[in-house]
Amino acid sequence: MSEKLINLENIHKDYGGKVVLDNINLYVRDKEFVTLLGPSGCGKTTTLRIIGGFETPSAGVVYFDGKKINDLPPHKRPVNTVFQRYALFTHMNVYDNIAFGLRIAKVSENVIKDRVTNMLKLINLPDYAKREVSSLSGGEQQRIAIARALVNHPRVLLLDEPLGALDLKLRKEMQRELKSIQQQVGITFVYVTHDQEEALTMSDTIVVMNKGKIQQIGTPVDIYNEPKNAFVADFIGESNILDGVMHKDRLVSFCGKNFDCLDSGFEKDETVDVVVRPEDFEIVPIEDAQLVGTVKSTIFMGVHNEIMVETEDFTWKVHSIYNAEVGDKIGLFLTPDDIHIMHKS
C-alpha cells in the first residue's frame, strides 16, 4: 500500500469558465482524519465530490491507492459518503437503509443481519432497526447515515458538513462520537466543514481552503500557532491583523515602534502582515508597556473579557480575565513569540 491513500494532483475545476478549484495538490494518508476547512464557496465540497466521483476534474489526476480513478463511477469507488442532509431513503426503515449497500453488493442476508446489528450498536441506537426514518430526530438520522455508509467497510468515509443541521450541544456530542467511531473502525475520514472549532478538535490534518486554492495544510496545532497568511490567521480563531515593516531578520516595526520577533527571511524593509492573537496579550502597568491605549469597550465572554483597546494607529482586540472599565488607560505587552509575521498575499 502506498503511503498516500488518496492523492490529488494539480486538480482544476471550472463550471463554464468560473474557476472553482485552482491547482489543488493534496494527499490523504491511510487512517488519517483530514478536514477540508474554509468559508462557503471555497471549493471544499467540490473537492470532496471529486474524491467521491460525483464531479470530474477539468484537469488533474485523482489517485486512489496509487491507481488513477478519474473515470471510475461513484458506485465502483471504495469510498462512501455521508451527505449534508443525510439523504436517507424515507420509503425504508432504519434496518433496510443500513442494509441497502450490502444488498446491492449481494451479501447474504445472514451476514447483513450481523453487520447491521453491529453498526446499530456502534452508533448507540441498538433498538432502532424497525423504526421509520421519518420518525427520527436530526441527530438520530445523522447516525443512521453514518452507519449506512460505514457498514460497507469503505476504505475512506467522506463527510460533507454532516453536523451542519444540528444544534450546538448535539453538534459537540456528535463531534466526540464521530472521532471515537473513526478510531474504533480505523478508517480514513475526509471531513468538510466551515466550522473552525470542529476542524481543530477532530482532525489529524487540516486543509484550509479559500477561493478554490489551498491556503495551508497542517496539524491543528500548526495551523493555529503558525498560520501561513493573514486569511488563515483570521479564519482560524480570532486575530489582530495590521501592516508592519520588516527592518531586518527578527525585527519588525508597527504602530510606530520596533518589536523583536522570531521570523526571518524577509527582504529588507518589506511590508508585511503582522498577526497577534487576542489571547496572547499581557496587560501590564503602563510604565512597563510596549503599547498604551484606551479601553473602548469590554464584553464579558464567559471565560474571559473581550477588551477593545484603542492606540494611536490601531484598535486591538484583547482577551483577558482582567476587568477593565471603558475609558481606562491600560498597557499591553507582547513577547517575541506572540508576534507572527506573514508575507502580504
Binding site: G52, G53, H75, N80, F83, A87, F89, F100, G101
Partner: peptide, 11 residues
C-alpha cells in the same frame, strides 16, 4: 443528494 447516495452505496 438522494440519487448520489444510492450511487455511492453501489447502485
Amino acid at each position: 443528494n438522494l440519487f448520489e447516495a444510492a450511487q455511492d452505496l453501489g447502485c
